[in-house]
Protein backbone atom coordinates (compact mmCIF):
# COMPACT_ATOMS: atom_id res chain seq x y z
CA UNK A 1 0.00 0.00 0.00
CA UNK A 2 1.01 3.56 -0.56
CA UNK A 3 0.26 5.05 2.77
CA UNK A 4 0.16 8.84 2.71
CA UNK A 5 1.04 10.03 6.17
CA UNK A 6 -0.93 13.02 7.26
CA UNK A 7 -0.59 13.69 10.94
CA UNK A 8 -1.67 17.32 10.56
CA UNK A 9 -5.13 16.05 9.63
CA UNK A 10 -5.69 15.45 13.32
CA UNK A 11 -5.43 19.18 13.90
CA UNK A 12 -7.99 19.98 11.18
CA UNK A 13 -11.62 20.64 11.94
CA UNK A 14 -13.78 18.73 12.54
CA UNK A 15 -11.39 15.93 13.51
CA UNK A 16 -9.53 17.80 16.24
CA UNK A 17 -12.88 18.69 17.76
CA UNK A 18 -14.04 15.08 17.55
CA UNK A 19 -10.94 13.82 19.34
CA UNK A 20 -11.26 16.39 22.11
CA UNK A 21 -14.97 15.66 22.49
CA UNK A 22 -14.12 11.97 22.66
CA UNK A 23 -11.50 12.62 25.31
CA UNK A 24 -14.05 14.69 27.21
CA UNK A 25 -16.60 11.84 27.18
CA UNK A 26 -13.94 9.34 28.24
CA UNK A 27 -12.93 11.50 31.19
CA UNK A 28 -16.57 12.24 32.09
CA UNK A 29 -17.51 8.54 31.99
CA UNK A 30 -14.54 7.60 34.15
CA UNK A 31 -15.07 10.36 36.71
CA UNK A 32 -18.84 9.89 37.01
CA UNK A 33 -18.43 6.12 37.19
CA UNK A 34 -15.73 6.51 39.82
CA UNK A 35 -17.71 8.96 41.94
CA UNK A 36 -20.55 6.43 42.14
CA UNK A 37 -18.33 3.37 42.47
CA UNK A 38 -16.10 4.60 45.28
CA UNK A 39 -18.70 5.07 48.06
CA UNK A 40 -20.61 2.01 46.84
CA UNK A 41 -17.48 -0.12 46.79
CA UNK A 42 -16.39 1.15 50.20
CA UNK A 43 -19.76 0.35 51.76
CA UNK A 44 -19.89 -3.12 50.21
CA UNK A 45 -16.26 -3.73 51.19
CA UNK A 46 -17.03 -2.85 54.82
CA UNK A 47 -20.13 -5.05 54.70
CA UNK A 48 -17.90 -7.90 53.52
CA UNK A 49 -15.95 -7.68 56.80
CA UNK A 50 -19.04 -7.08 58.93
CA UNK A 51 -19.83 -9.23 61.94
CA UNK A 52 -23.35 -9.83 60.63
CA UNK A 53 -23.55 -13.05 58.65
CA UNK A 54 -26.38 -11.76 56.47
CA UNK A 55 -24.48 -8.66 55.48
CA UNK A 56 -21.48 -10.78 54.58
CA UNK A 57 -23.54 -13.15 52.43
CA UNK A 58 -25.43 -10.37 50.65
CA UNK A 59 -22.36 -8.27 49.96
CA UNK A 60 -20.51 -11.40 48.85
CA UNK A 61 -23.29 -12.12 46.34
CA UNK A 62 -23.18 -8.52 45.10
CA UNK A 63 -19.45 -8.75 44.48
CA UNK A 64 -19.66 -12.13 42.77
CA UNK A 65 -22.41 -10.95 40.40
CA UNK A 66 -20.61 -7.84 39.24
CA UNK A 67 -17.22 -9.53 39.01
CA UNK A 68 -18.22 -12.72 37.23
CA UNK A 69 -20.14 -11.27 34.27
CA UNK A 70 -18.18 -9.59 31.48
CA UNK A 71 -18.48 -5.81 31.53
CA UNK A 72 -19.64 -5.75 27.90
CA UNK A 73 -22.56 -8.03 28.75
CA UNK A 74 -23.35 -5.93 31.81
CA UNK A 75 -23.42 -2.88 29.57
CA UNK A 76 -25.86 -4.56 27.18
CA UNK A 77 -28.05 -5.57 30.11
CA UNK A 78 -28.19 -1.99 31.39
CA UNK A 79 -28.93 -0.72 27.89
CA UNK A 80 -31.29 -3.32 26.44
CA UNK A 81 -32.81 -5.15 29.39
CA UNK A 82 -33.06 -2.90 32.45
CA UNK A 83 -35.30 -0.21 30.84
CA UNK A 84 -37.74 -2.93 29.75
CA UNK A 85 -38.02 -4.26 33.29
CA UNK A 86 -38.70 -0.84 34.78
CA UNK A 87 -42.23 0.59 34.95
CA UNK A 88 -43.17 1.95 31.53
CA UNK A 89 -42.83 5.65 32.35
CA UNK A 90 -39.55 5.26 34.17
CA UNK A 91 -38.14 3.02 31.44
CA UNK A 92 -39.00 5.58 28.75
CA UNK A 93 -37.45 8.33 30.80
CA UNK A 94 -34.32 6.23 31.16
CA UNK A 95 -34.21 5.62 27.40
CA UNK A 96 -35.16 9.05 26.05
CA UNK A 97 -35.81 11.98 28.29
CA UNK A 98 -32.73 11.75 30.44
CA UNK A 99 -30.13 14.02 28.83
CA UNK A 100 -27.64 11.71 27.09
CA UNK A 101 -29.23 8.36 28.02
CA UNK A 102 -26.37 6.37 26.47
CA UNK A 103 -23.84 8.22 28.59
CA UNK A 104 -25.69 7.61 31.85
CA UNK A 105 -26.35 3.98 31.00
CA UNK A 106 -22.66 3.42 30.31
CA UNK A 107 -21.64 5.35 33.43
CA UNK A 108 -23.96 3.22 35.59
CA UNK A 109 -22.66 0.00 34.07
CA UNK A 110 -19.08 1.13 34.68
CA UNK A 111 -19.90 2.24 38.22
CA UNK A 112 -21.49 -1.04 39.31
CA UNK A 113 -18.82 -3.15 37.65
CA UNK A 114 -16.08 -1.09 39.27
CA UNK A 115 -17.81 -1.06 42.67
CA UNK A 116 -17.57 -4.86 42.75
CA UNK A 117 -13.84 -4.70 42.18
CA UNK A 118 -13.36 -1.86 44.67
CA UNK A 119 -15.31 -3.77 47.32
CA UNK A 120 -12.87 -6.66 47.05
CA UNK A 121 -9.99 -4.22 47.28
CA UNK A 122 -11.41 -2.58 50.41
CA UNK A 123 -12.13 -5.94 51.98
CA UNK A 124 -8.54 -7.03 51.43
CA UNK A 125 -7.28 -3.69 52.75
CA UNK A 126 -9.44 -3.85 55.86
CA UNK A 127 -8.40 -7.41 56.56
CA UNK A 128 -4.75 -6.49 56.12
CA UNK A 129 -4.89 -4.15 59.11
CA UNK A 130 -3.52 -6.19 62.05
CA UNK A 131 -6.21 -7.53 64.39
CA UNK A 132 -4.39 -6.03 67.35
CA UNK A 133 -5.35 -2.58 66.08
CA UNK A 134 -9.04 -3.43 66.18
CA UNK A 135 -8.73 -4.85 69.67
CA UNK A 136 -6.79 -1.82 70.88
CA UNK A 137 -9.50 0.48 69.51
CA UNK A 138 -12.10 -1.67 71.22
CA UNK A 139 -10.21 -1.52 74.48
CA UNK A 140 -10.08 2.27 74.46
CA UNK A 141 -13.87 2.25 74.30
CA UNK A 142 -14.35 3.21 70.65
CA UNK A 143 -17.50 2.02 68.93
CA UNK A 144 -17.11 -0.07 65.78
CA UNK A 145 -17.82 2.91 63.42
CA UNK A 146 -15.36 5.05 65.39
CA UNK A 147 -12.70 2.39 65.17
CA UNK A 148 -13.35 2.04 61.45
CA UNK A 149 -13.20 5.77 60.90
CA UNK A 150 -10.18 6.66 63.05
CA UNK A 151 -8.05 3.54 63.25
CA UNK A 152 -8.71 0.99 60.55
CA UNK A 153 -9.66 3.03 57.47
CA UNK A 154 -6.65 5.35 57.53
CA UNK A 155 -4.34 2.34 57.56
CA UNK A 156 -6.36 0.35 55.04
CA UNK A 157 -6.41 3.30 52.65
CA UNK A 158 -2.65 3.51 52.67
CA UNK A 159 -2.41 -0.19 51.89
CA UNK A 160 -4.83 -0.03 48.96
CA UNK A 161 -3.75 3.27 47.49
CA UNK A 162 -1.52 1.81 44.74
CA UNK A 163 -4.14 -0.71 43.55
CA UNK A 164 -6.76 2.04 43.83
CA UNK A 165 -4.96 4.21 41.28
CA UNK A 166 -4.64 1.26 38.94
CA UNK A 167 -8.38 0.67 39.36
CA UNK A 168 -8.95 4.23 38.20
CA UNK A 169 -6.79 3.54 35.19
CA UNK A 170 -8.96 0.45 34.59
CA UNK A 171 -12.16 2.48 34.60
CA UNK A 172 -10.64 4.86 32.05
CA UNK A 173 -9.80 1.95 29.80
CA UNK A 174 -13.10 0.18 30.42
CA UNK A 175 -15.00 3.30 29.43
CA UNK A 176 -14.05 2.44 25.84
CA UNK A 177 -16.71 -0.29 25.94
CA UNK A 178 -19.32 2.47 25.95
CA UNK A 179 -18.77 2.72 22.19
CA UNK A 180 -20.84 -0.44 21.77
CA UNK A 181 -23.97 1.36 22.98
CA UNK A 182 -23.37 4.52 20.97
CA UNK A 183 -21.36 6.79 23.25
CA UNK A 184 -18.83 8.61 21.08
CA UNK A 185 -15.93 8.42 23.51
CA UNK A 186 -12.26 8.51 22.57
CA UNK A 187 -11.94 5.09 20.91
CA UNK A 188 -15.23 5.55 19.04
CA UNK A 189 -14.12 8.96 17.77
CA UNK A 190 -10.80 7.63 16.54
CA UNK A 191 -12.72 4.96 14.68
CA UNK A 192 -15.11 7.57 13.29
CA UNK A 193 -12.15 9.60 12.02
CA UNK A 194 -10.71 6.46 10.45
CA UNK A 195 -14.07 5.93 8.73
CA UNK A 196 -14.23 9.44 7.36
CA UNK A 197 -10.59 10.00 6.42
CA UNK A 198 -9.20 6.46 6.00
CA UNK A 199 -6.19 7.57 8.03
CA UNK A 200 -6.36 4.81 10.61
CA UNK A 201 -2.76 4.98 11.80
CA UNK A 202 -3.09 8.63 12.73
CA UNK A 203 -6.55 8.23 14.24
CA UNK A 204 -5.75 5.16 16.36
CA UNK A 205 -2.33 6.63 17.11
CA UNK A 206 -3.89 9.77 18.54
CA UNK A 207 -6.25 7.74 20.75
CA UNK A 208 -3.36 5.55 21.91
CA UNK A 209 -1.33 8.64 22.77
CA UNK A 210 -4.20 10.14 24.75
CA UNK A 211 -4.69 6.97 26.78
CA UNK A 212 -0.94 6.82 27.46
CA UNK A 213 -1.02 10.42 28.58
CA UNK A 214 -3.82 9.66 31.03
CA UNK A 215 -1.87 6.66 32.37
CA UNK A 216 1.26 8.79 32.70
CA UNK A 217 -0.57 11.46 34.68
CA UNK A 218 -2.09 8.82 36.95
CA UNK A 219 1.38 7.37 37.50
CA UNK A 220 2.71 10.74 38.61
CA UNK A 221 -0.32 11.33 40.84
CA UNK A 222 0.20 7.97 42.48
CA UNK A 223 3.87 8.60 43.16
CA UNK A 224 3.24 11.99 44.74
CA UNK A 225 0.23 10.71 46.73
CA UNK A 226 2.28 7.88 48.08
CA UNK A 227 4.99 10.30 49.13
CA UNK A 228 2.59 12.59 51.02
CA UNK A 229 0.61 9.78 52.62
CA UNK A 230 3.48 7.61 53.80
CA UNK A 231 3.65 7.67 57.57
CA UNK A 232 6.88 9.00 59.05
CA UNK A 233 7.40 5.67 60.80
CA UNK A 234 9.47 3.32 58.72
CA UNK A 235 7.44 0.29 57.70
Amino acid sequence: MNYQWNWSLLLDEPYAGWLLAGLGWTVALSVVGWVIALPLGTAIGIARTSSSRWLRVLSGFYVSVFRNIPLLLQMFVWFFVVPELLPDRLGLWFKRDLPNPEFWTAALALAFYTSGRLAELFRAGLQAVPRGQVMAADATGMSRPQALRHVIMPQALRIILPPLTSEFLSIVKNSSLALTIGVLELTAQSRQIENFTFHGFEAFGAATAFYMLVALILNLVMVSLRRTLTLPVAV
Binding site: F80, P83, L92, K95, R96, T180, G182
Partner: peptide
Protein backbone atom coordinates in the same frame (compact mmCIF):
# COMPACT_ATOMS: atom_id res chain seq x y z
CA UNK B 1 -29.15 11.17 16.77
CA UNK B 2 -28.42 7.75 18.24
CA UNK B 3 -25.80 5.71 16.46
CA UNK B 4 -26.69 2.03 16.14
CA UNK B 5 -24.49 -0.74 14.82
CA UNK B 6 -26.77 -2.32 12.25
CA UNK B 7 -30.34 -2.72 11.02
CA UNK B 8 -31.41 -5.18 13.69
CA UNK B 9 -30.40 -2.72 16.36
CA UNK B 10 -32.16 0.12 14.52
CA UNK B 11 -35.40 -1.87 14.58
CA UNK B 12 -34.85 -2.62 18.25
CA UNK B 13 -34.39 1.07 19.00
CA UNK B 14 -37.69 1.96 17.27
CA UNK B 15 -39.54 -0.93 18.87
CA UNK B 16 -38.37 -0.13 22.38
CA UNK B 17 -39.29 3.53 21.79
CA UNK B 18 -35.71 4.57 22.43
Amino acid sequence: VLQVRDNAEGLLAVNSRR
